[in-house]
Computed example of a mutant assay.
Amino acid sequence: MYKNLKSIGITNPSDIERYSLRQEANSDTLKIYFHKEKGDFLTRSVKFKYPRQKKTVLIDGGRGTYKDTTEINANLRFIVEELDKITRRDQQEKDTKQQVLSELRHLEKVVSNKIAEIEAKLERL
């Protein structure tokens, strides 16, 4: 399913927790962090360096002035898209879990208040 991640040796994408991407001089550094196992002291991660692609672009609307620029490697772009899918899914699951927990806490308060109200009515009788 994640062919670009598999091409760089990541065989179990579901173990990915997060990633970081930074530019250093003429390369981009991708660091992928995996879920920590219970008892592990260090975070498991792998690092990849990709050279930036050089590109010459026209900058003055056709007068013949060009500028050299660099951009992210095409392979890295595809890998980052797959990583975004994985990490967003994890974030959505966390958000859903937080929402359910919030609803549960609210329900606990409502039930507690209702029980207290009924007990107060019983005391008055």
Rank of each mutant, 00 (worst) to 15 (best):
K3C: 05
N4I: 04
L5W: 13
I8D: 01
G9D: 01
I10G: 08
D15W: 02
I16W: 06
E17L: 08
R18L: 04
S20P: 01
R22T: 12
R22E: 14
E24G: 07
D28W: 10
D28V: 06
D28A: 12
T29F: 13
T29V: 14
K31F: 11
F34I: 00
H35G: 01
E37N: 09
K38G: 00
K38R: 02
G39C: 08
D40M: 08
F41N: 11
F41L: 09
F41W: 04
F48T: 10
R52H: 09
K54R: 05
K54V: 09
K55C: 08
T56R: 14
V57F: 11
G61K: 12
G62F: 12
R63W: 11
R63K: 13
Y66W: 09
Y66V: 04
Y66K: 03
D68Q: 12
D68L: 13
A74S: 06
N75I: 00
L76M: 02
V80G: 00
K85M: 12
R88M: 04
E93M: 13
K94E: 11
D95S: 14
Q98M: 04
Q98T: 06
Q98H: 01
Q98W: 11
Q99L: 10
L101C: 02
S102R: 12
R105L: 14
H106M: 04
L107D: 04
K109S: 07
V111D: 00
S112W: 00
K114S: 08
K114I: 13
I115S: 08
A116H: 15
I118K: 13
A120S: 01
L122E: 09
L125C: 00
L125K: 08
